[in-house]
Each structure stands twice: as C-alpha cells, then as structure tokens.
Amino acid sequence: MFEEGQLYSAVTTQDDGTVTVHLADNHPGLHDEAYLARRGEIAAAALAHEPGGPVPVVQYTDDEHGIWRTVCAELAPKHERYAHPEFLRGKEALGLPAERVPQLSEVTALLAPLTGWSYTCAPGLVPLRDFYGRLGRRVFSSTQYLRHGSQPLYTPEPDIIHEVVGHGNQLASPRFAAVTEAAGAATARLETDEAVKFVADVFWFSMEFGVMADGPDLKAYGAGILSSYGEMDEFGSMEIRPLDLVDMGTLNYDITAYQPVLFRAASVDELEDVVGSFFATVDDDLAARLRAQAPASV
C-alpha cells in the first residue's frame, strides 16, 4: 500500500537557513552539486510561501526549459497513441506551452476557467491529509523543480512535468476533475489514518495509474502513466483487472517500478459510478469493512 513520503525527496532546513534536498540513492542528480543547489533554492522558495499568497515565480534556466521542451515533444505522439480521449480533450482545452516551463500561476490561469482548479507550490512532500484536503478545495499542490538533465525522460520522483503535464491536463477534464475533488473531500470525513490511506491507494490505481477502455482499445487516463515516457509503452502488457475497490485499496505495490497490475474502467461513466461514488460516500466504517475483505496475501 501507499506509504506517505515514498514519492518525494526529503527536504530539511539547516541552522543557517540553507535548504537541503536529500535525493534517493538512485537519483541521477545525487552527485551533481549544481543540481542539488538548484533543488534547494527552489524548495526554499516554496517553504517560504505564505498560504493564499502569490505562488513564487521560478526563473527557469535555458537548460530547464530544454528539459521541458524535450519531454513535451517526446510525450506528445505517445499521448495521441495511448491517452484516453477524455484526457486528450482536457489537454487540448488547457493548451499548456510546450516550448517552456510554465509558472504555476499560468497553469492556474489556464485551468481555472475550465474546471475551477488552481495550483499552489510544494517543496516536495505534502502530508497526506494536507494534500488531499487541498484537492477537496480544488487546489493541487505541485513541485516546481525539474528532473535531472542527464535523463530527461526519467525521474524517480514527481517533478513539475508529472504534476502539470500529467495532472494538469487531467484536471482540465471536468469529469476527471470532479473525481479528484471527491477524493480530496473524502478525507475531511475520515478520522483514521488507515481510511485516508485506503482512499489514497484507490486514487493511486485510478487517477494516478488508471486505464480505460476506448472501444476495443485500452487507453490510459492516469497522470502517472501519461507523464511517463516509458510507462506508456509498458502499460498494455501489464495484468489488467476490472475496477475493484478492495483490490485497489489494499494491493501491495512498488512505486519505484512500472506498475505490474492496473485496473481498467469500462468507461468514464464506470469510473464515476464506482470510484467517484466511493470517494463521495466513504467513511471510516466503509473503509474498514473494505479493508477487512482483502485476502491475507494481498
């Protein structure tokens, strides 16, 4: 199951005010002092951000714009091939720039007229209840840094490409945006951490790594798949199961590898009926009952 803190590098503030980002051992930027300093600079700006205030502007470098440009160019044809039409409609409506990294305030300006969502900044990890609580208010907490330039098509952690290209285009669909909002609103009703994690795991296997039928074809709508160059080539060969809330909320998985098990919605209607309705009605008792139905080996 999802464990809070798995997805993001730890961020600490030293006694002298210096912000340090602690990258994982498999991170391609681990020994790049310039990259580490840049990550600390961007994280510091997010840490200093006052809630409700203007989102910090990051002056992206030519190299950072180049990473964004490269990834967008490589993802575009894969989206046309692998993305569900509902995601593609959102992408077309949003119209993100492909040649440069947008500021989060720009993403908000594009997104708000479509679905009422906005973006705020995060240095990295946002506590689970805070992250989902903001989703319930139609606010997406996004990192602002970019992946290391040595491997532009790979990142071991969510960066602004994942947060904006993956989730931003998804949130431009009113239907996907409503399911995401319902997941966030659910946490306000939940008292136990176990119930919150159950919701987060169902979210993982739907809005992050969900697949969906498109006639006879299997397409992706999850932000984790559609922001990953490699994952788009692999998802069709994974074990595909029908939507199952017990399975989705309790299945063990490794976030550092391609997801070997994915859950297929027959349509957006089914996603709304099964996952959206669950988010809209779940309470601690329901989450506990569903968890108790999981096989011991899950």
Rank of each mutant, 00 (worst) to 15 (best):
D285Y: 04
P85F: 13
E208L: 03
E194L: 13
V211C: 09
L128G: 12
P97C: 01
A172P: 03
S173P: 04
G124S: 13
H31N: 13
D247P: 01
Y82Q: 04
S227C: 09
Y132R: 02
E50T: 15
E33K: 11
P56G: 11
E4N: 09
D269W: 00
F279H: 01
D201L: 01
E41I: 08
G215T: 02
V19C: 08
T180P: 00
M207Q: 12
L125S: 03
Q293A: 15
P260Q: 08
D244W: 05
P102M: 03
G249R: 10
K197G: 14
H162P: 12
V274Q: 03
A195T: 10
L125H: 11
L104N: 09
E64H: 04
A186L: 10
E106P: 12
D159Y: 12
R39I: 00
S9F: 02
T250V: 13
D214S: 14
V165K: 00
P260A: 01
A10V: 06
V71N: 05
G230I: 01
T18Y: 00
V282S: 04
G276A: 03
P260H: 06
L23I: 04
G17L: 02
G224E: 00
A46M: 13
C72R: 14
V139M: 02
D283V: 08
L110E: 06
A220M: 04
E106Y: 06
F205K: 09
Y145G: 09
F176W: 10
V246T: 14
L7P: 00
S237I: 01
D25G: 10
A178Q: 13
I240F: 04
P156C: 08
S206T: 15
M232S: 01
E239H: 14
M207Y: 02
R69K: 15
G5F: 05
R100A: 10
L128Y: 02
G149I: 04
A10G: 02
T250G: 10
D130V: 14
A93W: 03
V19K: 11
F263E: 02
H31S: 12
Q293V: 03
Q6G: 14
E208D: 06
G53Y: 04
G124E: 12
L290H: 05
A112Q: 15
W204F: 05
F140I: 12
T281D: 07
F279L: 05
V179A: 01
G52R: 06
F176A: 14
P28Y: 11
E234R: 15
T192M: 10
K219R: 15
I255W: 02
A195R: 07
D16T: 12
E234M: 13
E106S: 07
